[in-house]
Design a protein around this nucleic acid. Structure first.
Lengths: 245, 245
DNA sequence: GGCCCGCCTTGATATAGGTCAAACCCGGGG
DNA sequence: CCCCGGGTTTGACCTATATCAAGGCGGGCC
């Protein structure tokens, strides 16, 4: 944004970071907005923030300053017990909107951490509220995003409350698969950015169980696992594990 | 409340159902609104609906027509597997707002059922959206309610993902206690409106386990259980079960 | 008022997943 | 190139909770 010559190059650079030219816009906050509206949302996003692997985006207890949209990278959110145990509440990928849990009290209730180098768009919350007041479709989209998170949470409850280890893993893998696909990545081959322990925490299981079940699924020919790389060989069979019985 | 003479009584009757005179207004949608704004919300609530014990308020898959605020009674929401297994996602009491999960897709994803005779205020969703556009504080309150539900869900994940049976029950009882207290009922003595099986489903346990753990807590002198009536004898000890360890 | 049926309790036994332990493997740094 | 350490795999054993089974009891309905 600071070059003097070659205005077209500058232009390209500018476009690259604008919502209107972001490949994630249909998944993210500006979904459903027209171009003029999207430009106004662009102006909200006054800062991008880079996080190194392992860095916190925010911590439980800190005041809500902004919502964040992931531009690239991968993150996890955890809720912590008083006693230090932690529960992974979700994994986040590009296009996901973070910080929603803090709106009600004005303080975050989870820790959100980068699982690889990550870039986020920072959307100052008071500005967002103000703009949402002016743009009904933005307001609507914010409601939808909040509600979508509630729906997702219900799915997690289902998983934690009434599925067996194998089913949980199958659901987990299919969910990742589907989300990668929605972002233009391969649905059938991807890299797990999180450790077995983090998967376990998310699924309410221990890391050894995750490891064993992955091995078992591999042995049965449903998937192929090489370290963090997973290939889904028989998505249909995974789906069957969820619906049947 | 059904006398024919005495117009002031009739008047009282009218007031009784207005948000502005509803004892739940600070927990419910109109929280934080001024009187003039609240009146406009009142006019949204064009219908009250009575549900008999066991009746559905809405079912998974049906289109979102309205949000509902519980005026009196008790309900549960369940998500269903393809195979029929059901997971209770939450219990609802007066002041709670229902139907939030449907905003994102326009269709309900849960079944919501009365656990005793229940009365709800019906808030047509399109009207609500329109009015929220005009009243910033209503808009804000809607966001807060949505976010509060997300925060609640995170708590449930913590519970399902990393607590043992005894801790889950303790958390469950303390949660009910706190919510009853917020509504002006006794925090220490209340009636469970749901069966052991429904508690079990909510907590990711089987009904026999619920029964056993309740018996154990009673034996240890932390609570007293007579059928569905629970008395909390040592809330501090219950709290300790959650934080310590 | 009595009878049922749904709900609950309690016991005996089974098992999924947890715990503990050892060894491996890969990637990164020296 | 080797070494080191985090993450992972795998095995043996253990335990919390599920499952199966048998009564009990209380509230609602006839």
């Amino acid at each position: 944004m600071n070059r003097k010559s070659a205005p077209d190059l500058i232009n390209v650079n500018h476009l690259r970071v604008a919502c209107s030219s972001c490949s994630l816009r249909e998944l993210c906050l500006p979904a459903g907005l027209d171009l003029r509206e999207m430009e106004r949302v662009d102006r909200l996003v006054n800062r991008r923030r880079k996080l190194a692997h392992g860095e916190h985006l925010y911590r439980s207890g800190t005041p809500l300053a902004a919502l964040y949209a992931i531009r690239s990278g991968f993150m996890k959110s955890c809720v912590l017990h008083d006693d230090g145990r932690e529960q992974v509440a979700g994994f986040h990928m590009p296009g996901d909107l973070l910080g929603l849990d803090a709106i009600s009290t004005g303080r975050h209730i989870s820790d959100t951490v980068a699982l690889e180098d990550t870039e986020v768009c920072e959307i100052p919350f008071p500005h967002l509220e103000r703009l949402a007041r002016e743009l009904p479709s933005l307001h609507q989209q914010l409601n939808r995003v909040l509600s979508r998170e509630i729906a997702r949470d219900y799915g997690v409850m289902l998983l934690l409350g009434s599925m067996k280890a194998e089913e949980r893993l199958a659901a987990f893998l299919l969910n990742l698969s589907q989300r990668f696909a929605a972002r233009g990545y391969s649905a059938l081959e991807f890299r797990l950015r999180m450790t077995r322990e983090e998967i376990g925490s998310y699924l309410g299981l221990k890391l050894e169980t995750i490891s064993r079940v992955l091995s078992r699924l591999a042995q049965e020919g449903l998937i192929e696992v090489r370290h963090k790389n997973v290939k889904i060989l028989d998505a249909e069979a995974l789906r069957r594990m969820l619906s049947q019985r």
